[in-house]
């Protein structure tokens, strides 16, 4: 079982993830877009770059009414990115199996802190999702699956800490594989497509001379 998870199933997950993400993006771009024929008022390239950068931060006018969401959102995303790219086993893995080069991993205490921040953010966001009338209305099964799979992958990763048991490590790999397989079919895709959506809006706004 663990041979299967670490071997063929891992390869399968990698293929589904890579092909799926590339395929999804290709499918989006293949929808086409008619050229804007109106005379430009500003630069669409600058607009796109600006919006991609600016939307990492909330507009100051919206902070007050969305503060809970903003704080929890940052906690989850920053924590998760720190875990994903700076946890020592991940750095090792990327170096040995994917990139061939590594970078300094974060110390153990920072790992724990990142994990706690990410977990707190994820749980809070999910709770807000099920409690707030707006998100209750918008939420679909996909949103729950994405949240739970992410939680499962994260929690198994933390249980496998110190890699004291091979079984726990395999469980973590399984969690990640399930997440990777589900990823291209879900709105987890926003991790890649936010670039497109922000860019598209920013380009249009930039052309219109609007700082969006």
């Amino acid at each position: 079982m663990s041979d299967f998870i670490l071997g063929p199933f891992w390869n399968f997950a990698v293929i589904v993830f890579t092909a799926g993400v590339v395929g999804r993006i290709a499918m989006i771009l293949m929808c086409g877009l008619s050229k804007d024929l109106a005379a430009a008022r500003g630069s669409s390239v600058k607009g796109a770059a600006g919006t991609i950068a600016r939307r990492f931060f909330p507009r100051k006018e919206t902070i007050r009414s969305n503060r809970f969401h903003i704080i929890a959102g940052y906690m989850f995303h920053i924590g998760l990115l720190a875990l994903l790219f700076f946890a020592a086993p991940h750095v090792q893995f990327l170096k040995n199996h994917l990139l061939g080069f590594g970078w300094p991993a974060m110390p153990h205490w920072a790992f724990i802190l990142s994990a706690e921040i990410a977990f707190a953010g994820l749980i809070l966001l999910w709770l807000r999702r099920v409690m707030h009338p707006v998100t209750r209305l918008l939420t679909r099964l996909d949103d729950h699956l994405a949240a739970w799979l992410t939680f499962f992958a994260m929690v198994t990763g933390c249980l496998a800490l110190f890699e004291s048991f091979a079984g726990l490590r395999v469980l973590h790999v399984l969690g990640v594989e399930l997440l990777m397989i589900y990823f291209p079919f879900s709105n987890l895709m926003h991790a890649f497509t936010f670039f497109l959506s922000r860019g598209a809006s920013g380009a249009r706004a930039g052309r219109h001379g609007v700082k969006a």
């Binding site: 999804r24 499918m27 989006i28 929808c31 969401h69 959102g73 999702r129 707030h132 707006v134 998100t135 918008l138 939420t139 679909r140 949103d143 994405a146 709105n187 895709m189 926003h190 497509t193 936010f194 497109l196 959506s197 598209a200």
Partner: peptide, 11 residues
């Protein structure tokens, strides 16, 4: 298509 792909129903 990119908008709908990106929407995470955050509200």
């Amino acid at each position: 298509a990119s908008y709908f792909s990106s929407c995470v129903h955050c509200g």
